[in-house]
Design a protein around this nucleic acid. Structure first.
Length: 595
RNA sequence: GGCCCGGUAGUUCAGAUGGUUAGAACGCUAGCCUGUCACGCUAGAGGCCGAGGGUUCGAGUCCCUUCCGGGUCGCCA
């Protein structure tokens, strides 16, 4: 038998013709002398009917069918007497003439149903069953379409897809590397790329002008709902460009991918926020602008306040900022307000002061310490009305932003005011070039050490490195960092200066990035680019909240794969070839030696 | 590494204050049923209550340790 149709791809024109369909038994409804089968393939579900009047022999065979058997069915596609309006193929069914059981199946440990809320561990252990679910198939089909659209779009815009190696030189900095031992060079290791960053820059030196790649990347760090140890970037780089060129080609891509894959029209250009503005208004460098609750700085009002928590924070160079949680004063109990106070402690805030505005007065933890002028000033600045709850954080700016930025999101979630249908794209630009590393007592690159400073800030490099802004940009969708990039340094002298500022000696810079620095000596075009977290992009397009839902075989929080059991021990022989001894073995060896 | 939530039939869950024989739904097995599509009806099987230790006359329930899954902080140039 040769398959003629996918289950859900039959139509009126096929009625009264013979079809052959193959797939999995989704459901058997046995009425005695009449058996219905819902047959499922990746296209959908089609009902098969076995009728004793037509073929009693065949019906006896159909009795054996169970969930997830793989079968082939030949028969006439007919109009149903009882149409099922809830099913895309509900007006037809196949009147079976022949049934072949291609493969029997054990009863599956999880049900292949849309409404499964099976435990995720169970889903991941039996991932092949979980992936049979329509929703998961839809997600992976969506992912395929995103990848295809990326290839089409970038190809049409003159980008070349070029593969870069997966076994590369470790350039420590940033995330922890995954290492691969070399058999040929005992004691030496390859690293898996955290991103193709340096290699794509070298492709610019080679004159490829526009490069892109759908690249696997690896970072040996702890997992989150939106972070896996191996993930996929849509990575691109362009020569002879500045910030606006990169932004514009990427706005085109986003417009295209949402249009082609989801049929949604996204309007461009996207709003741009500087890093400074994003932090001051939203307390985050990846603000969710689908709702208000913006941060308000009240430092000037309370700098001399009798409430020492406020005045002291400001005296120490910090600030006091607030959000007006509209309606929460009326809505939240004391217990709920206190739980917000607990919530901000996650972000190192020592506490949360609050004022609930009521019809006939204020309910508050702090007003007794403050003057009327201060209180009135705050209410005016925060545009407080009866029913509102003003929440304050006083601390170092860094903590104030972080705590209030997260509090803002938490309040919005509790108030359920986030519109899931919105697609709020924006660019965050003008990131600081450096951030101070308290532990190591030096400046680190906020993006990476090849990021170009903004032209107008170059004069500040020596005097005020903290004030230098970079030609770096992130693209944000609904509070999720979708991607980021920068214009790179193409000038050797500037690169040397930046390395020096980052505290690299010449030898260190050479041993880490020598090959790149050398490449730059042979004629380097100005260049820049961007990389998307493809998993996150697909996750948001699929309207799910975990990238595990758009990755076929994801890993769990401890970086293992529940289906295959990776990572696992390997043969002694393999280790021997690699000249690798594990600490456990060393321990054993030492114990043996001691005895 | 820290904090929070969870782990009870195959699956999803319920099991106040410790108390005799641990329940439900779905799934599964068998029988009946010719228009079902959450098919229906009848009967049935199925449990080291994650693991180990402790308290107690008695532990699914309380305590300690540990393992597993999720969220989060740190981490993620």
């Amino acid at each position: 038998m040769k398959r003629t149709h996918m289950c859900a791809e039959v139509n009126e024109n096929d009625v009264n013709t013979e079809v052959v369909v193959m797939g999995w038994v989704q459901k058997r409804r046995d009425l005695g002398k009449l058996i219905f089968i819902d047959l499922r393939d990746r296209s959908g579900i089609l009902q098969i009917v076995f009728n004793t009047e037509k073929n009693s022999e065949l019906l006896r065979k159909a009795v054996q069918l169970r969930s997830e058997f793989v079968v082939a069915v030949r028969g006439m596609l007919v109009n149903r007497s009882n149409v099922n309006p809830d099913m895309p193929t509900g007006q037809w069914e196949v009147l079976a003439d022949e049934l072949r059981i291609l493969s029997k199946a054990q009863t599956p440990p999880i049900l292949i149903e849309e409404e499964v809320d099976a435990n995720e561990a169970m889903r991941l252990k039996y991932r092949y069953l979980d992936l049979r679910r329509h929703k998961m198939q839809k997600n992976l089909i969506l992912r395929h379409k995103v990848a295809k659209t990326a290839r089409d779009y970038f190809d049409e815009n003159g980008f070349l897809e070029i593969e870069t190696p997966v076994l590369i030189k470790s350039t420590p900095e940033g995330a922890r590397d995954y290492l691969v031992p070399s058999r040929v060079h005992p004691g030496k290791f390859f690293a898996l790329p955290q991103s193709p960053q340096i290699l794509k820059q070298i492709l610019m030196v080679s004159g490829f002008d526009r490069y892109f790649q759908i690249a696997k990347c690896f970072r040996d760090e702890d997992l989150r709902a939106d972070r896996q140890p191996e993930f996929t970037q849509i990575d691109l780089e362009m020569s002879f460009v500045d910030v606006d060129d990169v932004i514009s080609i990427n706005e085109g891509f986003i417009r295209r991918v949402f249009h082609d894959v989801l049929g949604v029209d996204v309007s461009t250009p996207f709003p741009r926020l500087t890093y400074k503005e994003a932090m001051e208004r939203y307390g985050s460098d990846k603000p969710d602008t689908r709702f208000g609750l913006e941060l308000v700085d009240v430092s000037d009002i309370v700098k001399n306040s009798g409430f020492k928590v406020f005045s002291d924070a400001i005296a120490r160079g910090g600030s006091v900022r607030a959000i007006n949680a509209k309606g929460c004063g009326a809505e939240f109990s004391r217990k709920e307000i206190d739980s917000l106070g607990e919530y901000v402690k996650t972000y190192k805030a020592k506490g949360m002061a609050w004022v609930a505005v009521e019809e006939n007065g204020l309910r508050s933890s702090i007003t007794k310490f403050m003057s009327d002028d201060e209180i009135q000033g705050i209410l005016k600045r925060t545009e407080a009305e009866a029913g509102d709850l003003i929440c304050f954080i006083a601390d170092k700016n860094e903590i104030v932003y972080d705590a209030l930025g997260h509090l803002r999101l938490e309040v919005a979630r509790r108030l359920n005011i986030i519109d899931d249908d919105k697609l709020n794209f924006l660019w965050v630009t003008e990131f600081p070039m450096f951030e101070y590393n308290e532990e190591e007592n030096r400046w680190d690159a906020k993006h990476h050490p090849f990021t170009s400073p903004m032209d107008e800030d170059i004069c500040l490099l020596d005097s005020d490195p903290e004030k230098v802004r970079a030609k770096a940009y992130d693209i944000v969708l609904n509070g999720v960092e979708l991607g980021g990039g920068s214009i790179r340094i193409h000038d050797q002298d500037m690169q040397g200066k930046i390395f020096k500022l980052l505290g690299f000696t010449e030898e260190e810079a050479n041993s880490r990035f020598g090959f790149l620095l050398e490449a730059f000596r042979y004629g380097t075009p100005p260049h820049g680019g961007l990389a998307y977290g493809m998993d996150r992009l697909v996750m948001l397009m699929a309207k799910t909240t975990s990238i595990r839902d758009v990755i076929a075989f994801p890993k769990v929080q401890n970086s293992s794969c529940l289906m295959t059991g990776a990572p696992d021990v390997v043969d002694e022989k393999q280790l021997k070839e690699l000249k690798i001894t594990t600490v456990d073995q060393i321990g054993t060896q030492e114990r043996i030696n001691e005895e």
